[in-house]
Design a protein around this nucleic acid. Structure first.
Length: 224
DNA sequence: TACCAGGAGAAAA
DNA sequence: TTTTCTCATGGT
């Protein structure tokens, strides 16, 4: 019996053209918005189902309370941690998740030692942490550890759906594998591509009924 | 007032 | 195995 066709098998040309169009439209993005790799880890957890503006407030509160370090998070009381991250929502859940990932990194010898492990070990380790799903793990790998992992988020799904490159409801790993199979394992490319997808999703042009000036025209989702 | 925003895990069907 | 529910705040 023939195997089922891949759910998501984009051509390199299609993805490269999409990336080029986004880059031409929006330019290079200063992404991920964080000062340190550890801050990326914190942001990746806090941004779960939350607006980034609220995450920024939570991170600022952590910084002002000297809680923006692995040791400080592990030493903090749950209530103190939860109160600091309150603006990002789900603060009780996220406080536990933050402590879980910090405990994992601490067991691994800290961020720097963890960064030296091979990618497969890093990814499986992160995914085994309570509260760290594939998107959060890949955010950490790509933006904190500079590993070539393509991040799939809701914006990526919508974009693929609108360009009819995918249905949009494929499993996370199917979409990630599709991007990584079609594109070279280039950290900068992956970082910029994901950032541009997010920027495009938030841009006003997405919401307009027609977008003749957008470089993505005539395929711009806004024109559909 | 209602809805949405860069998820993930647990429980229920 | 798949679907639904829960967690929670702040902006529009």
């Amino acid at each position: 019996m023939a195997g089922r066709a891949p759910l998501f098998n984009p051509s390199a040309e299609a993805l490269t053209a999409l990336y080029a169009a986004l880059l031409a439209r929006y330019g290079r993005q200063p992404w991920w918005p964080a000062e340190t790799p550890f801050e990326v880890v914190v942001g990746a957890v806090l941004t779960q189902n939350a607006a980034w503006t609220n995450v920024e407030k939570a991170i600022a509160r952590l910084r002002s309370r000297d809680l923006l370090s692995l040791d400080a998070v592990l030493a903090a009381e749950h209530d103190a941690l939860a109160d600091a991250i309150r603006p990002s929502g789900y603060f009780n859940v996220k406080a536990r998740r933050l402590r879980s990932v910090c405990a994992f990194l601490d067991d691994a010898g800290g961020m720097q030692r963890f960064a030296r492990r091979d990618l497969a070990t890093q990814r499986s380790g992160l995914l085994a942490v309570h509260g760290i799903g594939p998107e959060t793990a890949d955010d950490i790998l790509l933006y904190a550890l500079d590993r070539p992992v393509f991040v799939i988020d809701v914006y990526t799904r919508r974009l693929l759906q609108r360009y009819r490159l995918a249905r949009g409801d494929e499993p996370y790993e199917v979409l990630r594998a599709g991007f990584e199979a079609a594109l070279a394992a280039d950290v900068d490319l992956y970082q910029q591509f994901h950032a541009l997808i997010v920027v495009h999703a938030k841009a006003a042009c997405r919401k307009t009924p027609l977008c003749p000036t957008c470089v993505l025209a005539p395929a711009c989702p806004g024109g559909r």
